[in-house]
Simulated assay, not measured.
Amino acid sequence: PKVEKIIEGLVNRPERKWLILNKVDIAAKEKLLALTEKLLNLCAFEQIYYISAATADGLAELKTAIGEAMPESEWHFPEDQVSDASERLAAAEITREQLYLQLHDELPYASTVETEKYSERPDGSVEIYQQIFVERESQRAIVLGKGGSRIKAIGAAARKEISDLMGVPVHLYLHIKVKAGWDEDRSVYRDMGLDWVE
């Protein structure tokens, strides 16, 4: 139902539309083809790609196609600048990445990270408070880990990467909050640097 709702919002949009189906390494071919046909009946997709993020099947072709589809233009940013995201947003993305890297299949996919407070200390270090939102209490337990071990590991790895990126010591404080339906909260998307599209 969530995918169908997203597709309904895409149908009348003028942009080119590509259908990219993940997890082909574990999907039954017959079901995958039936799903593809169903989705094609809902929306006219220009291209269809079958990929597996786990095994990298189809990723090279997808990356090539994305590269070829990009219009040529002048550089919008210096060549060595990897992102236009603010340090606050970059810090949240790094912590979100650690959720994926450390939780693997246990990851509560219905989760996000929001930087609540970001400030510089007089000694030049940075203090960051982040909320990890999950939808259910059982997901909170997964992120927390036994005796808080998982959240400590996530925090340590994120702290190091953020510190390396910024070139200053970082004090990172993570809190996990259960917030059912966070994915319908427009402010969460705004804080991620995304626009809400009706």
Rank of each mutant, 00 (worst) to 15 (best):
Ile94Asp: 00
Leu42Gln: 12
Lys63Thr: 02
Val188Arg: 00
Met192Leu: 13
Leu101Lys: 15
Trp182Tyr: 09
Tyr49Trp: 10
Lys177Pro: 13
Ala153Gln: 00
His175Asp: 03
Ile128Gln: 10
Ala153Thr: 04
Glu4His: 15
Lys31Ile: 10
Leu172Glu: 13
Ser111Asp: 09
Glu137Cys: 01
Gly9Asp: 07
Thr64Lys: 07
Lys38Trp: 08
Trp18His: 13
Arg16Cys: 08
Tyr100Glu: 01
Thr55Met: 08
Leu35Ser: 05
Asp185Glu: 09
Asp183Cys: 12
Ala156Arg: 14
Leu33Cys: 10
Lys152Ile: 06
Trp18Glu: 09
Val134Thr: 09
Ala110His: 03
Ser111Asn: 03
Glu30Met: 11
Leu174Lys: 08
Lys17His: 06
Thr115Glu: 06
Glu37Ile: 06
Ile26Phe: 04
Val170Asn: 01
Tyr129Lys: 13
Val178Lys: 07
Gly9Lys: 05
Ala65Phe: 11
Glu161Leu: 03
Val188Glu: 04
Ala91Thr: 10
Ser125Pro: 12
Asn22Val: 10
Ala92Arg: 08
Lys177Leu: 10
Gly148Ser: 08
Glu87Asp: 11
Val143Lys: 13
Glu161Tyr: 03
Trp75Tyr: 12
Val168Leu: 00
Ala158His: 01
Phe45Pro: 05
Lys31Gln: 03
Ala28Gly: 12
Gly181Phe: 00
Lys31Glu: 14
Leu21Met: 15
Asn41Cys: 12
Tyr49Asn: 02
Asp80Pro: 08
Lys179Thr: 07
Arg136Asn: 09
His171Gly: 02
Val24Cys: 15
Glu46Gln: 04
Gly67Tyr: 06
